[in-house]
Every structure is written in C-alpha cells, then in structure tokens.
Amino acid sequence: MKSPTHTLSATDVHAAADRIRPYARRTPLLDLEIDDRRVLLKLEHLQRGGSFKLRGALNAILSGALDDHLVAASGGNHGLAVATAASLLGVSATVYVPTTVPAAKARRIEAAGARLVRHGATFAEAASAASDAAARPGHRFLHPYDDPDVIAGQGTVAAEILADAPDVDAIAVAVGGGGLAAGTALAFDGEGRVVAVEPEHCRCLYDALAAGEPVDSAVDSVAASATGASRVGEIPFDVLSGHPDRADHSDRPGHSAHDVSSVLVSDEQILRARDRLWEECRIAVEPAAAVAFAAWLAGQVPGDRPCLIVCGANADWVAG
C-alpha cells in the first residue's frame, strides 16, 4: 500500500479520471436557489450502481490484475460498486456484508452478479471475514476507503465539479471512512474548502481529528449503512489531517479558507434534508446522501459558490 500524502496528489485523481472514463457516468450539476441562497448539487446518486463508490472500485480494479477474484466488505454501497464494476469488466466478485445490511442494497449486489455473504453484525466483522477470504491465491481484497487507488477514484467526483464549475469554492461531502473527503481534498489541491460532514453518532473522522489519530467511534445513525465506519481510514486521515482540522478552530495559526472542516449533523437534520430534496427537487436518496445538504441548510458550509455531493440512492424509500 502506498504511503498516502507524499504519493497521492491531484495527478493521481486526473489519471483515475482517464482510467474510468469508459465505464463511469459523468453526472450532472444542478444549480438551485433554496432559502434565498444559491447552491450546486452534484447528482452522483445517478452514477451506475447508485453511488460515487463505483469510481473508486473501477480505478482500483483497473490498477491491478483483471484475472483476480475480487473480494469486498461493505455496508452496501461499496459492495454494490464492486459488483457493478466487476460486471462491467468481466471479472468475478464476492461481497461480505453485515447481517444488518439494508435489503435494498443486498438485493442489488446480488442482481449485479456478485456472490453475497452475510457475516457479523458490524462492518468490521464483515471486513475481517472478507480479508481472510481474500488471502487465498487468486483473490484480491478491495478496501472501501483505505486504499490509494480507491481514494483517487473517488476524487474524480470533485474533479468533474471543478471542470464544470471552476468558481466553486467549497465542496461538502458525507463521510463514512473518509475516502470521498480525501479524494475531494486531493482534487481541490488547496484551491477551496472541503466540508466533511458526519452524523453526530457516526463521527469517526471528527473524533480522529480531535484525538490526533484514528480512533474507534460508536456507530448509531439513520445513515449508518453508508456512513457507519467505526474508524476512519489511515490514508484518508493522513490526507485530511494535513489541513487545519476543525471549523471551530478557525482562530488557530495557519487556518485559511483553503482547508478541511469537520462538522456534525443530527439524524433529525438528515431526515429533514432528505425530505426537502424530494419535496423541492424530486430527488429521492438514501439518508447518507442528504448529510451534506443538511449541513448546508444549517449554515455549516461556507463559500460564495458551494457544491454539495448527493452521494447515493440505494434505498427503497418514497415520501409518505
């Protein structure tokens, strides 16, 4: 595995964009006025497989041997991304998920052609079993966020945003294990702020930045199937902690508008934001995809031209 910060850069993100272009969709930007404020939405829930995760999976697979049997562990979206990418590239895959995986995500993983294995009550337990299975000859484990090729692939979301709207000065992203936030920071390359948003009770990045190192955190949120990593990835942490770490430390030396802010939103805010995306935009998404919007509605995303990544739609949900 690469050492993260001195080898990962915007160059890796642009190389990933070239690599995955034949397979990944270039998702649109939606320019809105809500509550008398302008905001851009990057509609990544329209990606193949229903989330941004396809980008990282494609880049990681295309950066290795295509004759390997792929093994993944996931709360749902990464597993579906690996299953989708494997189908596109003609390779086989097994996806380990916790027994708590939402039925919609499990069904779609199997429909994409991957073998589904339910194991353990948490992502960590599923990941341990997947890692053991991947130790067999001819098998390759694809980590959902603590992998440099996955991170570079996720950064292509932000690269597209900046290509289509170069005046964007802040990008807000939901955080699970930190891969999307880290990739976004690499793509931004010091030119704007990344706002890394987590549910109050799924806060592995927030807690790691407070502790100065990755630590174990509790997981309990309506968005946990997508943001439920109990520990931020080592590589994402290394990338993200290279910037001033917390919005509430804005008076510390070296803090500027070109950095990473870590903020929290409640489950109630997330569900209200999800419902507003449907009521005002007819965008139907899973709770995690409304996390960045919730932070923006609460005034936690700065900038004159902010963009929010609407990251996934793998839920069976309709407005009541």
Rank of each mutant, 00 (worst) to 15 (best):
V301S: 02
A187P: 10
T84M: 04
V265R: 09
H69I: 00
A247D: 12
S230A: 14
G176P: 13
S266A: 08
V263C: 06
V301P: 07
L54P: 10
A284F: 09
V95W: 03
E198H: 03
S92Y: 07
A211V: 12
A10P: 06
H69Y: 07
A298Q: 13
G75C: 08
H119A: 12
V150Q: 01
G178H: 00
T184V: 12
A86C: 04
D245G: 15
A158T: 13
Q300N: 01
T5K: 02
A315G: 10
A196M: 01
L88A: 10
S63Q: 05
F52L: 01
S217V: 03
A106P: 10
D169S: 10
E286F: 14
D67Q: 11
G56W: 03
T156G: 01
D248K: 02
A181N: 01
A24S: 11
H143E: 11
A196D: 01
A229Y: 03
D147N: 13
A57I: 06
L40N: 03
S63M: 02
R19D: 05
R246H: 15
I151N: 01
A73K: 09
A114D: 11
L277H: 07
Q300V: 03
H201G: 03
E234A: 13
T7P: 00
V195Q: 07
L277Q: 07
A24W: 08
A72M: 06
L180E: 01
G64K: 06
H69C: 05
A172P: 07
A172M: 06
E198Q: 14
P253T: 11
D207I: 01
S250D: 15
H14C: 09
D316V: 14
V95G: 06
A313Y: 10
D31R: 14
V318D: 13
A81H: 03
L240M: 04
A158G: 04
T184E: 00
R19T: 12
T94D: 00
E200W: 04
S250G: 14
I309V: 15
R231G: 05
T99G: 14
T94E: 03
P214K: 02
R107C: 15
L297R: 15
I171K: 02
A294W: 04
A229P: 05
A223Y: 08
P253D: 14
C307P: 08
L88E: 11
H14N: 12
D132L: 15
Q269K: 09
R21A: 15
R55Y: 05
S217L: 02
L30F: 07
A172F: 07
A298H: 09
D164S: 10
D167G: 06
V285H: 11
G233W: 01
R252E: 15
G190N: 11
A165W: 04
V232W: 00
L29I: 10
V310E: 07
H255E: 10
L62E: 07
P148M: 02
V82Y: 09
G299Y: 10
G79F: 02
A103C: 07
H201P: 00
T122K: 09
S230L: 02
S51P: 11
I34G: 04
A158W: 00
A229H: 05
D164Y: 00
A17M: 11
R203N: 15
